[in-house]
């Protein structure tokens, strides 16, 4: 029972860490890393709630689907990063200016 509490809190923590990094870093590769970690946090909460004496298989199936979709999205995002670098010369978002 304590298992579920613990891993749910860890999942929520991972999600917030990823969210913080997603917002505050400019480099696109770091943003993709942050998105993946946010996804892992959500999956952790899902599977933690499904664990126990008789594990519920539906969240497990959803998380497997989620992992595959996350890798497809990451692959597309990484190809986009290469295109951004080819067009603008750097793989970063531009510095924010106050205007």
């Amino acid at each position: 029972m304590n298992n579920i509490y613990l891993y749910s809190i860890v999942g929520a923590g991972l999600f917030t860490l990823g969210l913080y990094a997603l917002i505050s870093y400019r480099h696109l590769l770091r943003k993709i890393l942050a998105l993946n970690i946010m996804g892992s946090g959500v999956f952790l909460i899902l599977v933690a709630l499904a664990s126990g004496e008789t594990p519920d298989p539906v969240p497990h199936a959803m998380v497997i689907t989620g992992i595959v979709v996350a890798v497809s999205a990451s692959a597309l995002a990484l190809a986009l990063v290469l295109r951004v670098q080819a067009e603008t010369g750097k793989a970063e978002l531009p510095e924010e200016s106050l205007e």
């Binding site: 999956f43 599977v47 499904a50 664990s51 594990p55 497990h60 998380v63 992992i67």
Partner: peptide, 9 residues
């Protein structure tokens, strides 16, 4: 967490 399929994936 008793999810071996997810672990492999």
């Amino acid at each position: 967490l008793d999810a071996p399929d997810v672990a492999m994936a």
